[in-house]
């Protein structure tokens, strides 16, 4: 299967190693991975702020890069993003945006149908749930990004994959609660946002890693936990899963 990798701007700059692990993982699962070089930001920051014009321009750019038709320039069967939130932007919000006048709804829908969050792609498209046993003995808490959870309804996929790699996924009281990131929200309503992160951190069970498929959430939780002086190790889902395949000795990129 040919996969065009949409790294997303946050992962490109803050989770480069995890993004590389996502590529390794996809290759390991038999995918031929390409990286269209002109890709940039999916436009979600502007979309969430209500800046429709700018969001649409960034969406159109992404549609140019990843194509809306099966014979898109990247020539891929699927577009995979290592971010539930950005995947939601492409899958759910591009089609909504594209209803504005002058936008290309057809292209947006076509891309939406071919795009996947990493965990979603592995479980639902490739039908894989077992990835080796490299995580045996690891106690992991999973943070689900809200978009992955409530827009893509990836309620079980990340945990299934982690367990499929041998990890023990530990229940977390605030598992389904928002970490308080929300992009601009975290800088506009910074006290509330930080208190939301605190609620996650206060209820965190005793684990080796906190794993999330959303870099934004990890940046936020990690930033808050370091400010509090907690010692929590956050690991991007892509990295955790690659370690699952490869064991902890592999070339990995914990944050």
């Amino acid at each position: 299967m040919k996969v065009a990798f949409f790294v997303t701007c946050l992962a490109d700059h803050y989770f480069a190693d995890a993004a590389a692990d996502a590529v390794r993982l996809l290759r390991h699962l038999g995918c031929e991975v390409s990286f269209p070089p002109d890709q940039t930001c999916c436009g979600q920051p502007a979309y969430n702020a209500g800046r429709t014009g700018e969001a649409l321009r960034m969406a159109e750019h992404t549609l140019d890069v990843f194509g809306g038709q099966p014979d898109n320039p990247a020539g891929a069967d699927a577009v995979v993003l290592p971010s539930g939130s950005c995947a939601t932007m492409v899958k759910k919000f591009y089609p909504r945006l594209a209803t504005s006048p002058g936008a290309s709804a057809v292209r947006a829908t076509a891309l939406a149908e071919r795009s996947w969050d990493l965990a979603e792609f592995i479980v639902r498209r490739l039908g894989v749930t077992r990835l080796g046993d490299g995580l045996a003995g690891r106690r992991i808490a999973v943070h689900q990004g809200c978009h992955a959870l409530r827009e893509l309804r990836l309620e079980t996929e990340p945990a299934t994959l982690l367990e499929g790699a041998g990890a023990e996924v530990v229940p977390w009281e605030a598992q389904e609660e928002c970490c308080g990131f929300g992009g601009l929200f975290s800088v506009k309503m910074t006290a509330v946002s930080a208190a939301m992160a605190d609620r996650k951190l206060e209820t965190l069970p005793d684990v080796d890693w906190v794993v999330s498929g959303d870099g934004g959430c990890v940046l936020h939780l990690d930033g808050r936990s370091r400010a509090r002086g907690d010692r929590v190790e956050f690991v991007h889902l892509a990295t955790a899963l690659w370690r699952g395949v490869n064991g902890d000795g592999g070339k990995t990129g914990a944050k």
Partner: peptide, 12 residues
């Protein structure tokens, strides 16, 4: 309220 995020030393 938070420690600053650390950019990856090299981009993806």
């Amino acid at each position: 309220d938070r420690a600053l995020p650390k950019p990856s030393p090299r981009t993806f």
